[in-house]
Simulated scan of single mutants.
Amino acid sequence: MSAPVLVINSGSSSIKYQLVDGDTREASTSGLIERIGQSESVITHKTGEEKRVWNEHLDDHAAGLAAMVKACGEFGTPLSEAGLIAVAHRVVHGGERFVQPVVIDDEVEAVVADLIELAPLHNPANLEGIRVARRLFPDLPQVAVFDTAFHATMPERAHVYAVPTAWREEHGVRRYGFHGISHAYVSRRAAEMLGKDPKEVNVIVAHLGNGASITAVERGRSIDTSMGLTPLEGLVMGTRSGDIDPAIVFHMHRRTGASFDELDEALNKRSGMLALTGAIDMRGIVRAAAEGDQTCASALEIYCYRVRKYIGSYIAALGGADAVAFTAGVGENSAEVRARSLEPLAALGLRLDESANQAGGPVISTSDSRITAMVIPTDEEGEIAEQTAALLRS
Rank of each mutant, 00 (worst) to 15 (best):
A266E: 06
V201S: 00
V201T: 00
F75Y: 15
A206K: 08
V102D: 02
Y310Q: 13
S271T: 02
S80E: 13
S241M: 05
V205K: 01
S187M: 14
L136N: 10
I130Q: 04
E156V: 10
G234R: 01
K196S: 14
Y314F: 11
L350R: 06
P246F: 01
G272H: 04
H45C: 07
I130M: 08
V173Y: 09
V91T: 03
I384S: 04
F146K: 01
I280C: 13
N123C: 02
N268H: 08
S241V: 05
P78I: 06
A321T: 00
D60Q: 03
A190C: 11
D281S: 12
E40G: 10
V42C: 13
V87P: 00
L208R: 10
G94R: 00
L276N: 04
K51G: 02
A339T: 15
N268E: 02
S80I: 09
L140V: 10
A125G: 07
D60C: 01
A27W: 03
L79S: 02
V186I: 11
V201G: 00
A82R: 08
Q358Y: 07
N210L: 11
I371C: 12
E233V: 05
R240D: 01
L350E: 00
S298C: 11
D59W: 02
S2L: 13
G278L: 06
G320N: 03
R35L: 13
F178S: 07
R283S: 10
H207Q: 08
R340F: 11
H171V: 12
D264G: 02
G272K: 11
Y185T: 14
S41P: 01
R134I: 01
L58G: 02
K51F: 03
Q358E: 15
G242M: 04
K16W: 10
G177I: 00
R131D: 11
G228A: 09
A149T: 03
S13N: 15
